[in-house]
Computed example of a mutant assay.
Amino acid sequence: MTDSKGGTRGAGKRQRLMAAAARVLHEQGVERTTIADIAAAAEVPTGNVYYYFKTKDELVRAALAEHTGYLTRLTAELDELPDPLQRLKKLVALWVEQREVAARYGCPTGTLAAELGKRAEDGLDAEAGRVVRQLVDWAERQFRAMGLPDPEGLALGFVGAYQGMSLLATALRDPEVMTGQGARLTQWLDSLAA
Rank of each mutant, 00 (worst) to 15 (best):
L78R: 01
A114M: 09
D125Q: 12
K90Y: 08
A126R: 15
L94H: 02
G129T: 08
G180A: 04
A193G: 02
M178P: 06
G160H: 12
E77W: 08
D37G: 08
P149S: 10
S191R: 15
A21G: 10
D79S: 10
D150L: 15
A169L: 09
T55S: 15
R14N: 03
G69T: 03
L112N: 03
R23V: 05
T75F: 04
G123P: 13
L124V: 03
H26S: 15
K89C: 05
E176I: 00
L91V: 00
L148Y: 05
K13T: 10
T170C: 06
E77A: 08
G164C: 08
G10V: 07
V101A: 15
H26I: 01
I38T: 09
E97A: 09
G47Q: 09
R99Q: 09
K90M: 13
V49K: 03
P84D: 06
A39I: 13
R61N: 00
A36N: 02
G6D: 07
M146S: 01
Y51K: 04
L74W: 03
A76S: 14
T109N: 12
A128V: 04
G180I: 00
V177L: 10
L59C: 08
P84H: 07
M18L: 15
G29C: 04
L88D: 05
K13D: 12
R14V: 03
L94M: 04
W138P: 14
Y162I: 14
V24C: 13
V132P: 03
V131Y: 00
M1D: 01
L185M: 13
G10D: 01
G117T: 03
G106V: 07
Q86E: 02
R184D: 11
D79F: 03
V177Y: 10
A128S: 09
R173Y: 05
L25G: 06
T8P: 09
S191Q: 15
L17I: 05
V30H: 09
Y52G: 05
E58L: 08
E97D: 14
T68N: 02
L88I: 11
R73I: 02
Y52L: 03
W188N: 00
